[in-house]
Simulated scan of single mutants.
Amino acid sequence: MSEMFLEKFRALVPKYLEDKWRPEDGLAPDELDEILDEHDFDIPLVLREFYLALGSCEDLMEAYHFFWDPDELEVEDGYLLFLEDEDEKFAWGFRVDQLAVPDPIVWRRNNARGEWQSEEGTFSEYVFDMFEWVFEDDENLDDQ
């Protein structure tokens, strides 16, 4: 299987944490496979590579919203959930009929209403935009 996103995700460590990416920032392939084998669903390539690159990097996994650890992934309402906000008002996921797509569109659920809305971007787009927003916001606060 070719790597489409792995190096781009690894590059987030030096970009935002001003540190070199190290193997311990991610999950080992064997470890990730063992965890994922417990699920009755497959995850998209982009999410797999995200975990391989950053699955143990708490500074990014919990930078603003909380990315779920691979053993916490679950399917609800026809969506594979992978992210939630700190107040648990929203959850993000992929439609289960899109899990074979390498980089599927992200959907957001309003937990109070149970309504889903497309974020109109793929996982990789969403993640890169989110980190840019989170860390630029932090820089702007530091400048004040």
Rank of each mutant, 00 (worst) to 15 (best):
P44R: 01
G93I: 02
D71N: 13
M130S: 07
P44H: 01
S2A: 08
D85G: 13
L12Y: 02
Q117R: 15
E119C: 14
A53Y: 06
R109L: 01
A28D: 13
Q144T: 12
A100Q: 12
D77R: 09
A53Q: 06
L6G: 02
L81P: 06
L17W: 07
K20C: 09
V96H: 03
D143N: 15
P14C: 05
D37G: 11
L32H: 02
D37Q: 13
V46Q: 00
F94C: 02
D37A: 12
E72L: 11
F50G: 06
W116N: 02
D33P: 03
H39D: 06
F50L: 09
E31Y: 04
D71T: 09
K15T: 14
D19K: 15
F90Y: 11
Y126I: 04
D71Y: 13
N111S: 11
V127T: 04
E139G: 08
Q144N: 14
R48A: 05
V46E: 05
L6C: 07
V101Q: 03
F50T: 07
H39Y: 11
D59A: 15
L60A: 02
D42W: 07
L36W: 07
D69R: 14
H65P: 09
M4N: 10
I43F: 07
E88F: 12
L73H: 04
V46P: 03
M130Y: 08
W21L: 02
Y64S: 12
D25V: 01
I105T: 15
G121A: 11
L32R: 07
P104Y: 03
D59F: 13
F123N: 02
E139M: 13
E62P: 00
L47E: 06
E84M: 12
W133C: 09
E120G: 00
F41E: 04
V101S: 10
F66V: 15
Q98D: 15
C57M: 08
D42Q: 12
K8P: 00
Y51M: 01
F5K: 06
L45I: 15
L99E: 09
S2E: 14
G26D: 06
E34G: 14
Y79F: 14
D40P: 03
D40T: 12
F94Y: 08
D142V: 13
L27E: 08
E120F: 08
L73S: 06
P44A: 01
R22H: 10
R109N: 03
D30F: 08
N140T: 10
W92T: 00
L81Y: 05
M1Q: 11
L54K: 05
M4P: 00
H39I: 08
D25P: 04
M130I: 09
G93E: 11
V134F: 12
F66I: 15
N140H: 11
G26E: 06
F50I: 00
D71I: 14
D40W: 13
P70R: 04
D77Q: 07
L54E: 07
N111K: 12
E120H: 10
H65S: 11
F128A: 05
D103H: 04
L52I: 04
K8A: 09
E76Q: 15
L45Q: 13
F41I: 10
N110Y: 08
L99R: 05
D143E: 15
F94H: 08
I43N: 02
E139S: 12
L47M: 10
L73T: 08
F82L: 10
Y51H: 07
L54Q: 01
L80W: 06
D103Q: 02
G78L: 09
L52P: 05
E62F: 10
V13W: 07
L83C: 09
L45N: 09
L52W: 03
